[in-house]
Design a protein around this nucleic acid. Structure first.
Lengths: 140, 140
DNA sequence: ATATCATTGCAACTTAGTTGCAAAAAAAAA
DNA sequence: TTTTTTTTTGCAACTAAGTTGCAATGATAT
């Protein structure tokens, strides 16, 4: 729905522009996370590489999306659910990477466990990355 | 100790060469993980960039080192402790990144917790990345 | 000591990401 | 609605990370 896109942008005090609506729509249309390259393919020349980078950075700053660290070291971006405040936001959920189809998704209802660190270490944030076979690939 | 370096190489059926002994020594001399750039700096032109990449790849193939996924998406390499068999090896420990000094270390005695996945998902491997302040930085 | 096979350095390339600046597009003001 | 101001975009040029082919060098086995 188009109005959802506009609402998200308005709520974050962002001007409505072509690249922002188009890229935000991509995220809302699908479950998995997207890389810069994924987006570049999907919009097929509609916007410049640099514009995509800058749009993603803007969304990051506002807490609309977050990055996912992957084992293969490609930066992935995914929508934040609800309670991410601008800037300093935590993704308190587990990230899942499918070994078969390569899709990365956020398991929003799988909590990150507490890690007991050795004495002398202070905890700040935890990222959990699980590899395996996803729901869709298992069926086939 | 020099003989330790040679033993590791011999045990893994690797020819003894300059770059392999030098780079392996670097890993044995220190606690934290190293990036390609770190190594390049430390060996200061002794070996070609490409040779470093290939040496790291060789060590990976043999299970001497493993990669650590980082939030900033720079590939880090660290020594495997003991029971990593060649090729398919698991790093069943937590990785810690210090927000102050940037050092990444393997917390070998902090186990990776079991993650309970939603139905339909099959588990294969888990990576845990903790950010915070390390032992050394806390003192100062 | 030499033949064989593995390893290295070089050059050239691809891919990811960044920066400055002028043009174009939004939003605000008149 | 038109003009002004501010933001956003595209382009070009750049840096950094990583890869590949090939000829030359170095290690190992005979």
């Amino acid at each position: 729905m188009k109005s959802q896109v506009l609402n998200v942008l308005k709520d974050n005090h962002l001007n409505i522009t072509g690249s922002r609506t188009t890229i935000l729509e991509l995220f809302l249309q699908q479950e998995g996370a997207l890389s810069h390259a994924d987006i570049e393919k999907k919009i097929d020349g509609q916007f410049d590489r640099v514009t995509i980078y800058r749009t993603l950075q803007t969304f990051m700053d506002k807490g609309i999306i977050h990055t996912i660290p992957t084992a293969e070291n490609a930066t992935l971006y995914a929508l934040c659910k609800d309670n991410c405040t601008a800037g300093h936001h935590h993704d308190n959920h587990v990230h899942f990477v499918c070994d078969k189809c390569g899709t990365t998704i956020c398991l929003d209802n799988v909590a990150v466990p507490e890690i007991r660190l050795p004495s002398g270490f202070t905890h700040n944030q935890t990222d959990v990355l699980v590899n395996g076979i996803c729901k869709n690939c298992k069926k086939s």
